[in-house]
Design a protein around this nucleic acid. Structure first.
Length: 244
DNA sequence: TAGGCCATCTGGTCCT
DNA sequence: AGGACCAGATGGCCTA
């Protein structure tokens, strides 16, 4: 990809390949000039010096800059990949998460998922154990919508929706915010995304240290992305891990 | 206008 | 030696 035009950045603050007048005043070039002049003046061996050391060094500098630019673009691509799998609004009307917010939210999200997995394992163990103990006692069968929402799912709501609420940036609640045609919102700042690194237990209780502003209602199907199967496909995970 | 966020440049360090 | 990685500096853009 061409780093100059095809960049993932949303802005075009690209002084890019502009080489300003101070270019050759930097230390590296001063030093290089010194050495090249010195070798000529001292009458020592002249080792295959390029015709124009200035041009050569400029070329080198541009090459290094270009590599660095590409490296940063790759990093940003990976960051975008991370944003895509985060439980956070994505769309043209929503400003994307900052880098720091993305990382912090991702961390909390992973913690929540880990905790959720553990809880699920525990529950499965309990159900399995009790069903054996109770000798297959008849149980009322509940429809999925009648099942109480797992507490951790509610915590996940807290995680995502409080981040949203604090910044006035709506989570992608398609059914409740379909008509939102507002100006782009600010993403959550790092401050309430766990930046102060609270201990893990408290993170799991309330990852963002906020009361959950989103509530589930018993029996009501929730349209939010957190209650749907995770959008994280193996393909996207693979793409994330493989993207350079 | 201040502050946040970002892209880019740059020089230093480490690794292959 | 060349490349990758990193952090500091700088300047632009955007929002409150």
């Amino acid at each position: 990809m061409d780093s100059d035009t095809g960049s993932t950045c949303s802005r075009s603050s690209s002084p890019d390949l502009a080489v300003d007048s101070s270019f050759f005043s930097s230390k590296i070039f001063q030093q290089a000039e010194k050495t090249s002049n010195g070798s000529l003046a001292s009458g020592g061996k002249i080792q295959n010096r390029p015709e124009n050391p200035k041009e050569d060094l400029q070329e080198l500098r541009l090459k290094v800059n270009s590599r660095e630019r590409k490296r940063m673009h790759d990093l940003n691509q990976a960051m975008d990949g991370l944003r895509e799998v985060m439980p956070y609004a994505q769309g043209p009307s929503v400003r994307k998460l900052s880098k720091i917010s993305t990382l912090l939210l991702a961390r909390n999200y992973i913690l929540m998922l880990s905790s959720s997995l553990e809880e699920m394992k525990k529950l499965v163990g309990e159900v399995y154990g009790s069903s054996v103990a109770q000798n297959h006692a008849p149980r009322p069968v509940l429809a999925p919508s009648q099942l109480p929402l797992h507490p951790l799912a509610q915590s996940l709501h807290s995680l995502a929706s409080s981040a949203v609420a604090m910044s006035s940036t709506p989570l992608q609640h398609t059914s409740t915010h379909t008509a939102m045609a507002q100006a782009p919102h600010s993403p959550p700042s790092a401050g309430y995304l766990g930046f102060h690194a609270p201990p893990i237990p408290s993170l799991l209780k309330d990852p963002l240290h906020l009361a959950g502003s989103y509530r589930h209602f018993p029996g009501m199907p929730c349209p939010c992305s957190l209650c749907q199967p995770l959008p994280v496909s193996t393909a996207s995970l693979h793409a994330l891990s493989m993207s350079k």
